[in-house]
Design a protein around this nucleic acid. Structure first.
Lengths: 319, 319
DNA sequence: TTGTAGGCGTTATCAC
DNA sequence: GTGATAACGCCTACAA
């Protein structure tokens, strides 16, 4: 206290009476910081639940008394640079550059001009900006482990990526890392996937067709690892067409945990993309005092959402 | 041009060399406007495609060279007021107060302190703030008309709301207005809905159970008007259980046009929530010079997305 | 047409 | 400890 209690009370009263509120803009001018963080992303809109990225960021920002300035570039690199600069002009404390699904990209030079964090983006060239991404490889291991624990050792098919040779949609970090984790964990148990169907566009239609094709061949699959929930939805439809019951006849495990996962019947076991947590961490990292390892990669765990689409394997002659 | 071309060139050169960028904060302090708009909403996150609201707002803002400051309140009224004030402290040009689904609510007093627009919110008491909402009643009429044109006159059931007596989830503007439109349009053709099943929570589970119940009774439905796509998904599941084919045996028409609508088989005909357009209009209204009718309600049309879930009615003895 | 000074509302510094 | 004063960077009005 630098002033007397009397004066303080009087001031406070005056504040209340006048409805005085400090002008944040002028404060920003003076101090050089606007208590604002820029959030620049490619697409909020196209990916429904990626909004949770923003949600997490918003919460973390509010806890630290910050507001978020947001912009969307729809992948336009020039616009991206422009937005970053526009925000820096406004004295933001830092910028979160986010992608709605994990991608490998060049980091725009503008981001390096001040504090920044990469969210869901893996830089093609090493750079000093911290990176926050989901731990996809571990998620792959989780999926494989869950199947192994349920007793599956054969008839495990992958829907979304090819296995021999490995083939994944390019640029999609999730695909290759999930695959890696799956293969690794299965191999540790002496198991090899029975096959995999590369799907270009991970929508239900692709999952439907891939699964249909799988069923057309003699070897009936025992378990499907679908690389996202939309593929799973298509797989469910194909299984239904073939009068096969999910969990009883064919188990399905999936990734992302979009809302549709819980809408399917039986409800789909899925390994969740931790959008909220990713958003949080990006902000926390940006505002961290020491900023620890500047170029560090922060992997956020992907939790298993256990539902009913994986059944225990029945003991068979081959088992 | 108030200066000579020579000088201008020199200045521009200096700008380029120095990398000079005007300080927007100081400009804001001087001019009193920050070229920023506040976007305060209840939940970006829970409602997947509501992110399109932000998308539209973002696009409209960028076209006018504005940035968006966003905040989320999760329905906390106190936080809402606080956020609005925080944003006004930052000299925003105006505030869009948005809800992720159309709701009837009290307008916080803080919104009235400066320019504001209500997005997806219907004020309980009349107030001078412009309102942007989807035209739900007309959407209801569209749904009914589509069914009538396909030849349906009987066996039309509503899933989501009750009919005799009308019963809708409270606070949900969409439910009551859609119902109104449906009844109106059917009545104009001398048709009455055969029944309606009130569902409290408009998720697939509710749609599934309601449809199951419907099928248990003798009178087979010919057409279902599901009040959102999630209910429709549940209805599809119940129909499938009963070995009824959508479009051939029972037609389904729906509202919202979430992504899942196009994932279903057959793809679901749905009347779309114009999120993007709603977001756009809110910003445009806020920045409109004349601001025309201040307290006006702007209804944005909901377009019919024609897919395959409505079949033409077969001529029957009763037809 | 060009130059200059004053002020937007803070905060920070520096004498007292 | 306290109170006056300069400065943040820009815009604008007014004088030259």
């Amino acid at each position: 206290m630098r002033i007397s209690a009397q004066i303080e009370a009087k001031v406070l009263e005056a504040v209340a009476e006048t409805g005085y509120r400090p002008n944040v803009v002028s404060r920003s001018l003076r101090t050089g910081s606007s208590h604002t963080i820029g959030f620049v992303s490619d697409t909020v809109a196209t990916t429904p639940f990626a909004g949770h990225l923003i949600w997490g960021a918003l919460d973390a920002a509010r806890e630290r008394d910050r507001l978020l300035l947001i912009a969307e570039t729809e992948g336009d690199a020039e616009l991206e640079t422009q937005m970053i600069e526009t925000m820096r002009d406004r004295q933001v404390e830092g910028i979160v550059l986010a992608s709605m699904y994990t991608r490998r990209t060049n980091v725009p030079a503008a981001l390096l001009d001040g504090p920044g964090v990469l969210l869901n983006i893996v830089p093609t060239r090493a750079c000093a900006v911290p990176v926050v991404i989901p731990d996809e490889a571990e998620a792959g291991r989780t999926a494989a482990r869950h199947l192994l624990e349920a007793g599956y050792r054969e008839g495990i098919y992958l829907v979304g990526v090819g296995v021999n040779p490995p083939k994944t949609p390019r640029g999609a970090v999730a695909a290759s890392e999930r695959l890696l984790g799956i293969i690794e964990e299965l191999a540790a148990a002496g198991v090899t996937p029975a096959g995999g169907a590369y799907v270009k566009d991970w929508q239900p239609k692709g999952g439907y067709e891939a699964t249909k094709e799988l069923l057309r061949r003699r070897h009936q699959p025992k378990a499907l690892i679908c690389f996202n929930d939309r593929l799973s939805m298509g797989a469910f439809q194909a299984l239904e067409d073939a009068a096969l019951m999910v969990a009883r006849d064919v188990s399905v495990i999936s990734f992302d945990d979009e809302p549709v996962a819980s809408w399917l019947r039986p409800a789909l076991t899925s390994i969740a993309l931790p959008h909220y947590e990713l958003g949080r961490q990006a902000i926390e990292l940006l505002l961290a005092p020491g900023s620890e390892a500047p170029g560090g990669v922060h992997r956020v765990p992907m939790p298993l959402r256990l539902r009913e689409s994986v059944g225990r394997v029945e003991r068979t002659a081959t088992g």
